[in-house]
Design a protein around this nucleic acid. Structure first.
Lengths: 182, 182
DNA sequence: TCGCCCATGTAATAAGTTACATGATTAA
DNA sequence: TTAATCATGTAACTTATTACATGGGCGA
């Protein structure tokens, strides 16, 4: 479970409120560790209880904005965790199950729907990543931290392009297997 | 949640017991929809209650092998589901969080551990997929169903190769950023 | 001052993981 | 005939999702 460490990282980059974190998770760290505001608030509570972060408001101040920042103990914990290892995350992709189901049923079951839908989604996501690349990482010297962030973005770019190629290839194969449009 | 449909697919390919399914999930369908035997047994119960599969043993026959097979209603349900669409599965990759944490902490925190560990895992997985490719999909004509299965395997091959390239690139960058081995 | 939105949170549900339990089969 | 193993299952726990609730600030 990496949510606490994703939060520590994000707060280390820039101290902010839970809502700000939620928004930031929507566009940067959230690309590889998504989280909703509900999860974030609960986890921030735990981080504070553990003494890893501190916030600028008294207990039970519902509705009032509170700003979180990482404490030395939190930074220590993050360092410890970075040096650990994990297994690759298991993949769970319903579209692959659909393709195999289509094979088992004999073609004509309609995976094309999902393939087309996913194709559109991956194209959108790729365009988004390309915008970020253009805006943040192009045409100037990059610091060490920026080079690492760019590397991560490139992984996203490659992945989306691979998914697009896969959907296109699968659609072409479906076309070849059921030429008449069953 | 695609586990029920993954099970239907697998049982349609070949009726078998829960334990057999669990074993099969360990090496084929499980590559893109992992499941433990506990999950499988519980889900098989639901599938039977829904009238989608039927098994060859009376209720409460604990310990005795029972063989499941898909009923027409189950095949119908699988067809219905194949034509649906889903959003791309969200990615959650701790290693990416680690890379970003390393950037935020200033290098020297030790992501290399995870990068090396993952590199080894992805190489093993790639070798496994290459064996399957060699054994099942090379040197002969493929049926329509086999072509689809091969396509899925190719996706696995590409993904593993991409992950390997990524780890290598990241390790090279880390090397460049901290040349003295901090 | 009233309504809307922002910020923070609670509660219920669902899915998956890990640890453990029990009946049947088999081989020494 | 008993120990090991196979096959099936239960239970507790963790993580994530979805829906809903409450307090505060601000503009019309």
């Amino acid at each position: 479970m990496s949510l606490p460490h994703a939060l520590l990282t994000s707060l280390l980059e820039q101290p902010c409120s839970g809502m700000d974190l939620a928004r930031r998770f929507g566009r940067s760290i959230g690309f590889f560790w998504p989280a909703t505001h509900q999860q974030i608030y609960k986890e921030l509570g735990k981080l504070e209880a553990a003494g890893w972060v501190r916030s600028s408001a008294e207990e039970g101040a519902r509705g009032r904005k509170r700003c979180y920042e990482v404490l030395p103990a939190g930074e220590q914990e993050l360092k410890r965790w970075v040096a650990e290892t994990d297994e690759p995350p298991p993949l769970r992709d319903a579209m692959m199950v659909r393709l195999r189901a289509e094979a088992a049923l004999g073609t004509g079951a309609g995976v094309e729907n999902d393939l087309l839908h996913r194709l559109a989604r991956h194209r959108t996501q790729l365009a988004l990543y390309e915008d970020i690349e253009q805006r943040d990482f192009t045409g100037r010297e990059l610091s060490a931290a920026e080079q690492l962030q760019y590397l991560i973005l490139q992984s996203g770019l490659t992945t989306e392009r691979e998914h697009i190629r896969f959907c296109e290839k699968a659609l072409a194969l479906m076309e070849a297997l059921e030429p008449a449009g069953v």
